[in-house]
Design a protein around this nucleic acid. Structure first.
Lengths: 200, 200
DNA sequence: TGTAGCATGTAAGTGGTTACATGATTTA
DNA sequence: TAAATCATGTAACCACTTACATGCTACA
């Protein structure tokens, strides 16, 4: 059977309460996208499949002044499936990143382009990190982290947010370090004799 | 057009020298898998496609006592395509990890299973980290890192290895931290009254 | 009057995994 | 004689991305 990848992320998200496809997309954006990215089309398709398989049930909600929506909640079978998944073996993950392909390859004449790519990524990661920090702060809302971890009714989302934050933080540090290393070599390429002349 | 994902990872790996499909699979295993995982079947298929498109050229090498092999090297078009890729915009990456789906969801009755999954991952990541450390040590071979970064003819593979190492190191730390937080709550669940009784 | 938000999809294509398939040589 | 290494693939399936499609309401 294997993966059913997105499926369990959707079930996990619905555990926090019923949602329409549209609402689910937003929920993914703030809480799930850190560790499982999905496009709205995928979510709509997945919800249809989950309902077909009896893991969620949808009901139509009429709205004044807004289009009707279809709101889904977990069935018992859905909760069971989620629990089964949590107990099943976990596949390890690895980074899969175009940027690293570039850095791996861009050692020679394309060094400048690699540095540019690293700089762009450093900026992107720093911006994402800032958003994560803000989210963490708004969840803690002045409380001490240790106290929150002890007392909050649910900590799962906080823990996963922390993982996303650590990832982006690591991205920023690594990019900056790599930029430094490559820039030093770029300079060296232009002034090689000078350096050799000063060395013992 | 878009991704062509594996394609450029293969071109980058072949930049370090010609290889057969089998040799490429091993090269991926030690140097590329940190940031782009691929199965041997995929590599064979990709090499066929790359040759069809003129980006690599293969030649048959007869071997005594071993099956013949087909060894591929980059063509000029292949090198150009790799450079074009390095200059093209870089897509950002995100974590996509089953474990985090479990932690996000497993806040309630499945807390024990989430802790078990975290422990398994912590062990896996620690083992991978150890291998990365050993690889780093064998690349540096007693040299100082700063000196290596200045003087080595190529640093790309070292930089990407450092990223993989940081990722696994972060995995270990985060898993241990999350285990601690969840275990404290597990205990709390069994001895809730006691804690309340001691609190002011 | 145009942009943003609400609301939901289909269709086609790309990329990746899993299962299956074959057969020789070297080492334990 | 069994397992590991060398060597290369095919076929079927699953998961994800990209492009396209529709239409209503609120607000600036």
């Amino acid at each position: 059977m294997a993966a059913m990848a997105l499926r369990h992320a959707v079930l996990a998200a619905l555990e926090e309460g019923e949602a329409s496809g549209y609402e689910l997309a937003k929920r993914f954006d703030v809480a799930v996208a850190n560790f499982w990215h999905a496009l709205p089309q995928q979510l709509y398709a997945e919800l249809t499949g989950l309902e077909r398989d009896g893991l969620v049930r949808g009901r139509r909600v009429r709205q004044a002044k807004r289009p009707d929506k279809r709101v889904y909640r977990l069935t018992h079978a859905g909760t069971d499936e989620l629990h089964r998944f949590i107990h099943a073996p976990t596949r390890p993950t690895a980074i899969r990143d175009e940027l690293l392909v570039k850095v791996h390859a861009a050692d020679g004449p394309e060094l400048g382009a690699a540095i540019a790519a690293l700089e762009e990524r450093a900026g992107y990661a720093a911006a994402k990190l800032e958003r994560y920090e803000a989210l963490v702060a708004s969840i803690l809302n002045g409380r001490d982290e240790a106290a929150y971890l002890r007392e909050s009714p649910r900590v799962g989302p906080y823990l996963t947010l922390a993982r996303g934050r650590a990832f982006e933080s690591e991205n920023v540090s690594w990019c900056r370090w790599a930029i430094g290393a490559l820039r030093a070599r770029e300079d060296e390429g232009h002034t090689k004799e000078d350096h050799r002349w000063r060395a013992p």
